[in-house]
């Protein structure tokens, strides 16, 4: 009996880098306004997180729910699925993430987003800034045009990276439930990019490792357990 475990990672690389990056070009040109709006939503969420405001704690999860919903529908469903049947197994993860963000937006004690000045905050800040500002330009290093830029809110990788940053910038006992889907995506995406010989695969693995490390630091320092109310003063 030959079975699934006989396959290697390379066996499941179904497409070439050329086809993969054309997905972003087609998405950016076809859905330009929506793509720009999703990026703007990320910028607003970042601004609200740094403002440390009570309203932001409600709005940020809503914005993140919207960009995950759009990335799941717009990128995964519309563009990625036709060239990668495995995406059908990943889509439920995006749906789950949207539901979780909605729950966090409406629960009585919301997550508290803000700068704490600790190491996790630095990493969270760096991840969000990297996802919003730097990641779209990474393709230039590989010789791809900006038209193929992967933008936060639409392309999955920068959306996931930014989300990891937002979670690290937040406080709340249950914030860790927001991590499994993005972390799993980091592993899957890193594997895909690695098999395609794309050096950016390292970025996904570094983000994963940093997030787990910061999570451990926060747990050890009791960041998660601190009373949320103390940080909700505008």
């Amino acid at each position: 009996m030959t079975a699934w475990w006989d396959y290697s990672l390379a066996d499941f690389l179904l497409f070439s880098p050329r086809v993969y990056y054309r997905l972003f070009e087609n998405m950016n040109t076809t859905w330009g306004l929506v793509v720009a709006s999703a990026l703007l939503a990320g910028v607003i969420a970042f601004y609200l997180a740094l403002r440390h405001g009570l309203r932001g704690n409600r709005i940020i999860p809503v914005l993140l729910a919207l960009v995950w919903a759009w990335s799941g529908y717009g990128f995964l469903w519309q563009y990625y699925l036709p060239i990668n049947w495995a995406v059908s197994y990943l889509l439920p993860g995006f749906v789950l993430q949207v539901v979780l963000f909605v729950i966090f937006a409406v629960r009585p004690l919301p997550l508290c987003f803000g700068w704490r000045g600790d190491f996790s905050s630095y990493v969270g800040l760096a991840l969000v800034a990297f996802a919003l500002i730097v990641y779209p330009f990474i393709g230039l290093i590989e010789g791809r045009g900006l038209i193929q830029a992967e933008l936060f809110g639409s392309a999955a990788d920068p959306t996931v990276l930014g989300t990891l940053g937002f979670v690290l910038l937040s406080r709340g006992t249950w914030r860790w439930v927001l991590l499994p889907v993005p972390l799993a995506w980091c592993v899957i995406s890193a594997g895909t990019l690695w098999v395609m010989d794309q050096k950016v695969a390292v970025v996904m693995l570094v983000a994963l490792w940093m997030t787990v490390f910061c999570g451990w630091l926060d747990f050890r320092n009791g960041v998660t357990r601190r009373r949320l109310e103390t940080a909700e003063i505008d």
Binding site: L13, L14, F15, S16, R18, V19, R22, L23, N26, Y79, P82, I83
Partner: peptide, 12 residues
């Protein structure tokens, strides 16, 4: 294998 997996991209 790989080469013809181009999705709905009209150019490809």
């Amino acid at each position: 294998w790989i080469t013809f997996n181009v999705g709905n991209d009209p150019v490809l």
